[in-house]
């Protein structure tokens, strides 16, 4: 899959920033999407097109366990988050939703905003078409792949019942 990058050269972007608590009285993706990232990037929604990626530094998604963070990003059109590393609950929430979270050291420095990036899941490669570079990423665990294929944890459980 190919998408445009939105890069945040920062570590510890937390779920309070991704979707502030004042919007947690809602849980539909389309409603949450309207407020995704608004406290740190006012133009986020205007700049994102369907199928884009977020690129960030270490420990992306730390803090609150709110799955609303994943939903708000997906609702806004984001197809995957690529980061140096992820906070544990956010990473779980991504996989459980069948949403891609890709870990690759140093990506926030290598991929710039607007770069066109291809995620090659089969070969474990990130291909930066704009800069003509390739980066490896940490392969998804088998279990995670199965969950992604099924479209998330609940569908996986139903399928394997």
């Amino acid at each position: 899959m190919i998408g445009k990058a939105h890069t945040y050269k920062r570590d510890h972007i937390n779920t309070d920033e991704i979707i502030p608590a004042r919007y947690l009285n809602m849980d539909q993706e389309k409603d949450l999407a309207l407020h995704a990232m608004e406290d740190i990037d006012k133009d986020f929604l205007n700049n994102v097109s369907e199928g884009d990626f977020i690129v960030a530094g270490e420990d992306f998604g730390c803090g609150s366990s709110r799955e609303h963070a994943v939903w708000s990003l997906r609702g806004a059109g984001i197809r995957a988050v690529i980061a140096d590393s992820f906070a544990r609950i956010f990473y779980r929430n991504c996989l459980n939703n069948g949403f891609l979270a890709i870990e690759s050291k140093g990506v926030a420095d290598k991929i710039s905003t607007k770069d066109e990036v291809e995620i090659d899941l089969k070969n474990g490669l990130l291909k930066n078409h704009t800069k003509n570079e390739e980066y490896e990423f940490i392969p998804l665990p088998d279990f995670a792949k199965k969950m992604l294929d099924a479209g998330g944890l609940l569908n996986y459980i139903i399928k394997n019942k």
């Binding site: 366990s65 799955e67 609950i89």
Partner: peptide, 28 residues
């Protein structure tokens, strides 16, 4: 479905925070 679920480890339990999908899976 709350990150501070780690609190209850103070009583020698394994206690951890998860998201809503995990919560739903555990409920079911």
């Amino acid at each position: 479905g709350d990150s501070h679920t780690s609190t209850h480890g103070a009583l020698g339990a394994f206690s951890t925070g998860v998201g809503s999908t995990d919560l739903a899976a555990a409920i079911a």
